[in-house]
Design a binder for these strands. Structure first.
Length: 460
RNA sequence: GUGGUUGUAGCUCAGUUGGUUAGAGCGUCGGUUUGUGGUACCGAAAGUCGCCGGUUCGAGCCCGGUCUUCCACCCCA
């Protein structure tokens, strides 16, 4: 019985048209990465589990694809291991490798491992797939591409400024106008947590706060209470829920809230610098927005946090994210190296461009001309012409199977038609005799006999 | 991990309260047309109704499980 072939949940095949569109996005991003001085690296699709585990929080650990050990791994287990029924005990004993979950942690590992070869500040970009054992839904896959640009070895806030420009440059280039680059600062969140006496509950606090625009003020407060944050602390958040005005007005209000928090004020100072610098150099089509509720993302961020959302009206999760991490290489033994980076979510950007019909027509690249195949003699002459055309940069090919009847002719024409090949050349008995080529325009149906040089002229 | 949803021909989908031989459009293949595609007309092939089990005289339809799709939650690009 033939089994029905399927692909795993959350994965996809891409046809030629889809690949062309994906390449268009990737090429655009890559071009801007290079323009900003980033250099490419690649890392393996799987890492040692130790490298990944514990870097993304408990939820992240759950979503990491683990790779089963090879060999007779069960024989090495003790009865206690089986009895434990505990994933945290059992899993490490049968799995020592895992598929990468993002590009930032493998990058940190790379930096530490190659620190002596690297010139700091090190600016790298990386475009590779990542895997998450998540349940698929809109814009969410188990295999998807991230396009990352990071700088390590510089604490300068000018890096943040440049990364904002980079976001703006890429989305402007993709004609995706009006994206919102939301920015926040972990230090401000720490400051607020300190202020409300929830310093030890920073993650719980930020996760709850992040949901503000989705579930509303009351539910956020309820969640904070549930997580054990004191009522008098929550009441101090009141001004935060009503934070309005433009970037600098919001900054001013935050200043008055966080007067007693050293770390909070530091965060404000950073944001202020970034905003002022961006204002003075300007951005093209994106909008930079301060969003104090922005907290999602990895818990290794220590300074700026970025998130990019699609233009208004497009229902899609974030299409990019990033931030500054002061200590990521520290985990792997290299201290005092600060990094900051951003990521583009290729697959989501694709969906957004598709929804807004923003893919240019020109990216549908196909063969420009196909030669109809009649017989051995004709094929030889055709192949010579095909070679010359290719030398001139014309995408040309010969249909491989010869015409043996009128049906075959029809079949070959049909083939050209279906592949949207705009020109067909016929070299049959007569053309062979006259040393001519019959060039047929598949759109107009017009057909002209000409010499080889005229053919090359016409097609290049 | 939680809740809901979907699955019938290659594709998009019909299929009545459970009742003979499961349909359509598109596509494919063949013909009208043996050196000319797209249009038209004629014809044909194509399905274990996701899979496993149950209820029933009888299941595409009802029930349970499982996989898959999509959506929401959690979390995230």
């Amino acid at each position: 019985m033939a089994q029905k072939p399927t692909i795993p949940k959350g994965t996809r095949d891409f046809n030629a048209g889809e690949v062309a569109k994906r390449s268009y996005i990737i090429d655009t991003i890559k071009e801007q990465f290079k323009l900003f001085g980033f250099e490419p690296i690649e890392t393996p699709s799987f890492e040692n589990s130790d490298t990944l585990m514990g870097k993304y929080g408990d939820e992240g650990d759950r979503l990491i694809f683990k790779i089963l050990n090879s060999g007779e791994y069960l024989k090495k287990l003790s009865n206690d291991d089986f009895e434990s029924k505990s994933e945290s005990v059992f899993t490490p004993k049968i799995s020592e490798k895992a598929l990468r979950y993002d590009l930032t942690v493998p990058f940190a590992r790379y930096v530490v491992q190659h620190q002596n070869e690297i010139a700091f500040p090190f600016k790298r970009y990386q475009i590779q797939p990542v895997w998450r054992a998540d349940r698929p839904q809109k814009g969410r896959f188990r295999e998807f591409y991230q396009c990352d640009a990071d700088v390590v070895g510089s604490t300068s806030l000018l890096q943040e400024v440049e990364l904002i420009q980079l976001y703006d440059a890429v989305f402007s280039e993709l004609k995706l106008e009006g994206v919102a680059i939301k920015i926040n600062n972990r230090k401000i969140l720490s400051g607020i947590a300190e202020l409300i006496g929830a310093k030890d509950k920073l993650i719980d606090f930020t996760v709850a706060l992040d949901k503000l625009d989705k579930i509303g003020e009351e539910k956020v407060k309820a969640e904070m209470r549930r997580k054990g944050i004191q009522e008098d602390g929550i009441s101090k958040l009141e001004p935060l829920f009503n934070l309005t005005g433009n970037f600098s007005e919001q900054i001013d209000k935050l200043k008055s809230i966080l007067t007693t928090s050293e770390i909070g004020l530091k965060g404000i100072e950073e944001l202020e610098f970034i905003n002022e610098t961006i204002s003075s150099i300007g951005i093209k089509t994106a909008r930079l927005q301060l969003d104090v509720t922005l907290a999602r993302g990895l818990n290794y961020y220590t300074g700026a946090i970025f998130e990019v959302s699609a233009p208004e009206g497009v229902k899609m999760g974030s299409i990019g994210g990033g931030g500054r991490y002061d200590d990521l290489t520290g985990i792997f033994g290299l201290n005092d190296v600060s990094g900051v980076g951003i990521s583009f979510g290729l697959d989501r950007i694709y969906l957004v461009l598709e929804e807004l019909n923003l893919f240019p027509e020109a990216i549908k690249e196909t063969t420009k001309v196909i030669f109809i195949s009649f017989g051995e003699q004709e094929a030889l002459v055709s192949l010579q012409a095909v070679s010359k055309l290719r030398d001139c940069g014309v995408k040309a090919e010969l249909y491989p199977d010869a015409v043996t009847s009128g049906k075959q002719m029809k079949k070959q024409m049909n083939y050209a038609n279906k592949r949207n090949i705009p020109y067909v050349v016929l070299v049959g008995e007569e053309e062979l005799k006259n040393e001519s080529f019959a060039l047929k325009n598949m759109v107009s149906g017009e057909q002209i006999n000409m010499s080889l040089s005229a053919l090359i002229e016409a097609l290049s």
